[in-house]
Nucleic acid binder design. Structure first.
Lengths: 319, 319
DNA sequence: AAAAACGGTTGACTCAGTCCAGTAATTGAT
DNA sequence: ATCAATTACTGGACTGAGTCAACCGTTTTT
């Protein structure tokens, strides 16, 4: 495993070199503008209404100089000069905080807002040039990859991190097969028989799909799929919940709960009278979700599947 | 589509901010060392045996000052000073090029090599700290994501870009289903029926898998899957090549050819006497590969599948 | 009430990086 | 062959982004 880390370190260093070089070209925006990199960062920070700490509700919470210095890790003396320059050319205004007369509350003037907007637009244009050679149909891949790098490296989640559900599209069934097969292989050692079963269920789902009676939802965070569930008809009165799964990266975010709730609601709306599902006792996280959704365990069966001795469970929810 | 680009631009800019901040912490390595960022880059470049241009075979091809200046985009005068500093503390040696006595050929002394190694090690240590919080089982995701960002943004291919084939693992069948379904949906408008067929074929492959008679290979570039093919027994004498596909991102790199060749070779080694495959006439790239591998078209059939009117083709290769 | 800490400011300084002019060697045009 | 243009490198002079240390007025702590 150490080898893997070393290889990754090498890759990161290569990536850094490449990325700084590529994005470095982007700095020419700043060369054009009358601002230093640091000045631009300060200007940008002034534009942010709220700092990292949640502002007192209601108040716009304009930042103070020391806040910005801490945030951007800029020398206070240097920051003073930058702020004076900004004030001299009319980009910012500063008034002493009545609550603490040492502090100065900073804000952008309309002229400052305009300068910031212009800078942003220029930077956006440069960034757009960066991706102008990326084919249209691979843009989402790039976005997903960037997002993945960010989250894996500890980029704190943002408001766009909301979980969304969408109906399935072409390729989603395959995605579910792949992810679940891999997930249960890693976590429980299930063999490839499980993947075969998943593929069969997936194929059946498509073959026997009845619009308005069968459903599949993919849960996404920021455009990246993180979970899925299927709701299929068994007969006129009974619907079956199948193949629920949540990616390891999205555990504990209520994704599973959302997916199950969606199934229950849709099943009710469709007029089904009962919702059943089959799972295995070792999947304790899923079990907790089913219990909380109102399912009750009605039977257990022992079976040898996927290379393991397992205990299957049938759960039912009367709608 | 413009919206998508705009959203991506916003994401990239966010990523930049995050990444420069995160990796910026990494610069403290240089703070410790006696070197400027630029000095370090120069030292690093001196360590590279060969520049971007292929060196004359055999000769180590030590870089000249101007080459490094061009490569790293540093001022020639500045570079002179840096190189003198290096020479003064005994890290580099320079001798005039006999072929062009204006030029100075640079090389690291053993002491220089040591300094470079130390710097590299320190940088590696810092980078390792960057990923110390990434769980072991997600390292490969990070690597793949970084690689994807690089290739999409035009990072030139490197020597590790060689295509490698490996047998299938758990999850690969699902991956093939997903990728092919999506690929043909985008490129030819095939509907989800195709995905159902893929899933069925995949399930059958696993169910009826006979070791030594059935095979699946995944083509990878730098650890990322870029294509796949299946070789399955039809009867004792006849093998069938199925579900060949190459990712759009890896076209024109001989991936398809490699996969087909692998099938042909393996089929011969297994003692099959004939290799058959079924494809569609619109898949011209695949057709060319089959022809060049020696297959001959034996029959055509018209069918309505996947929401389209298609012409199927059966190809045969006598082994 | 004195001491310590905080927010901000000023002056003095450093040093990474740039610009320009110059020298020696090489190439190209006549 | 000869002269102009170009290339590879160098030294001097300079800029300006960023740092350090001392300081002032205000607030908090003891």
């Amino acid at each position: 495993m150490l080898d893997e880390r070393e290889a990754l370190v090498a890759r990161i260093r290569h990536f850094n070199r490449f990325y700084t070089r590529t994005v470095g070209l982007l700095d020419h925006t700043l060369g054009q503008s009358a601002f230093t990199l640091t000045e631009a960062r300060v200007l940008f920070e002034l534009g942010h209404d709220s700092g990292p700490v949640a502002p007192t509700a209601g108040l716009p919470s304009r930042p103070t100089a020391s806040e910005i210095a801490a945030q951007l890790r800029v020398d206070a003396a240097y920051l003073t000069r930058i702020l004076r320059k900004f004030a001299d050319i009319g980009l910012t205004e500063a008034r002493t905080d009545p609550a603490d007369r040492r502090r100065r509350i900073l804000s952008l003037t309309p002229k400052g807002e305009a300068a910031l907007a212009a800078l942003q637009a220029a930077a956006d244009r440069d960034t757009a040039r960066l991706i102008e050679n990326v084919p249209e149909d691979r843009l989402d891949e790039l976005g997903a990859a960037l997002r993945k790098v960010g989250t894996l490296l500890g980029d704190p989640a943002r408001e766009e991190e909301a979980v969304t559900l969408r109906p399935h599209r072409v390729g989603d069934v395959g995605w579910v097969v792949q992810r679940q097969a891999r997930l249960y292989a890693v976590e429980y050692g299930w063999n490839i028989e499980f993947e075969a079963m998943l593929a069969e269920i997936g194929a059946d789902f498509i073959r026997n799909f009845v619009p308005g009676r069968d459903f599949c939802w993919i849960a996404e965070i920021g455009g990246e799929p993180v979970g899925a569930v299927f709701l299929v008809h068994q007969d006129h009165e009974v619907a079956k919940l199948r193949m629920l799964h949540v990616e390891a990266s999205a555990r504990g975010m209520g994704v599973g709960k959302r997916l199950v709730a969606q199934c229950v609601n849709q099943a009710r709306a469709c007029g089904y009278v009962r919702l059943v599902l089959w799972t295995n006792d070792i999947l304790v996280a899923a079990r907790a979700i089913y219990e909380r959704a109102g399912f009750r365990l009605v039977s257990e069966d022992h079976h040898h599947s996927f290379g393991k001795d397992l205990t299957g469970q049938t759960w039912v929810l009367d709608l």
